[in-house]
Computed example of a mutant assay.
Amino acid sequence: MSARQTIIAKLTAKFAPAFLDVIDESSQHHGHAGWREGGETHFRVRIATRHFDGLSRVAQHRAVMDALETELKGPVHALAIDVLPAEGPF
């Protein structure tokens, strides 16, 4: 399974998002730290879920980072997180 597919599977299982988009932005970081040939090193996650209702932005980001702890220790070098309102629009 690719890093992108793993991220999608883990976030879907943990947060049952109303919206989830996982974008591989590795090509934008060519030559930067952590970049590898073939990509899958730099991702942007756009997520909307009721699980984040009432949580601070820091707590929301920590929850995502905790869910992806293994990936962040391994193949994923960088992760940008955009939390969207659970009711949309997406």
Rank of each mutant, 00 (worst) to 15 (best):
Ala13Arg: 09
Arg46Gly: 01
Lys73Ala: 13
Glu87Met: 07
Gln60Ser: 06
His51Asn: 12
His61Ala: 04
Val83Leu: 03
Asp24Met: 12
Ile23Asp: 12
Ser27His: 13
Arg46Trp: 00
Lys10Ser: 09
Ala16His: 13
His51Leu: 07
Gly34His: 12
Asp82Tyr: 00
Ala13Glu: 15
Lys10Tyr: 07
Arg57Ile: 09
Glu37Leu: 13
Lys14Asn: 14
His30Cys: 12
Gly39Trp: 04
Ala13Gln: 10
Glu25Gln: 13
His29Phe: 09
Lys14Tyr: 01
Gly38Asn: 14
His32Met: 13
Leu79Ser: 04
Gln5His: 06
Met65Gly: 10
Thr70Glu: 15
Phe15Arg: 09
Thr12Ile: 02
Arg50Trp: 07
Ile8Lys: 13
Ser56Leu: 06
Ala78Ser: 11
Ala67Val: 00
Leu68Cys: 04
Ala59Gln: 09
His51Ile: 02
Ala18Tyr: 03
Gln28Ala: 11
Ile7Leu: 11
Gly39Gln: 08
Arg44Thr: 14
Glu37His: 15
Ala67His: 02
Pro75Ala: 06
Ser56Asn: 10
Pro17Asp: 03
Val58Ile: 06
Ala48Lys: 02
Gly88Asp: 10
Gly39Ala: 05
His32Pro: 04
Gln60Glu: 10
Pro85Asn: 12
Ala33Gly: 15
Lys14Met: 14
Val83Trp: 01
Ala13Cys: 10
Ala67Thr: 14
His61Leu: 02
Pro75Met: 06
Ala33Thr: 13
Met65Thr: 15
Ile47His: 00
Gln5Glu: 08
Leu11Trp: 00
Gln5Val: 01
Ala33Asp: 13
Val64His: 01
Ile7Arg: 09
Phe52Asp: 08
Lys10Cys: 10
Ala48Trp: 00
Gly34Leu: 06
Gly34Cys: 06
Ile8Tyr: 12
Phe15Thr: 09
His77Lys: 11
Gly31Met: 09
Val45Thr: 03
Gln5Gly: 06
Ala3Trp: 03
Lys14Ser: 15
Arg50Asp: 15
Glu37Trp: 15
Phe15Lys: 13
Gly54Thr: 01
Glu71Ser: 09
Ile8His: 12
His61Asn: 15
Phe43Arg: 07
Gly39Val: 02
Val76Pro: 14
Glu40Val: 00
Trp35Met: 10
Arg44Lys: 13
Ala13Leu: 09
His29Cys: 10
Met65Trp: 04
His51Met: 11
Thr49Lys: 08
Gln5Pro: 07
Ser26Phe: 03
Leu84Ser: 04
Glu69Met: 09
His32Ala: 11
Val58Cys: 06
Arg36Ile: 02
Gly38Lys: 10
Thr70His: 14
Ala59Asp: 11
Ser26Ile: 01
Ser56His: 03
Ile7Trp: 04
His29Leu: 07
His29Met: 09
Gly31Tyr: 03
Glu40Ile: 01
Arg36Trp: 05
Ala63Cys: 06
Glu40His: 04
Ile81Arg: 00
Gly88Ser: 05
Ala63Phe: 01
Gly88Thr: 02
Ala18Pro: 07
Pro89Met: 03
Phe19Ala: 11
Ala33Pro: 15
Val76Trp: 04
Leu84Val: 04
Val83Asn: 03
Arg50Lys: 14
Ile8Asn: 14
Ile7Cys: 08
Ala63Tyr: 02
Ala59Asn: 08
Leu84Thr: 00
Thr41Lys: 05
Gly74Val: 00
His77Glu: 07
Thr6Gln: 12
Ala9Lys: 13
Thr49Gln: 08
Glu40Lys: 04
Ala16Arg: 10
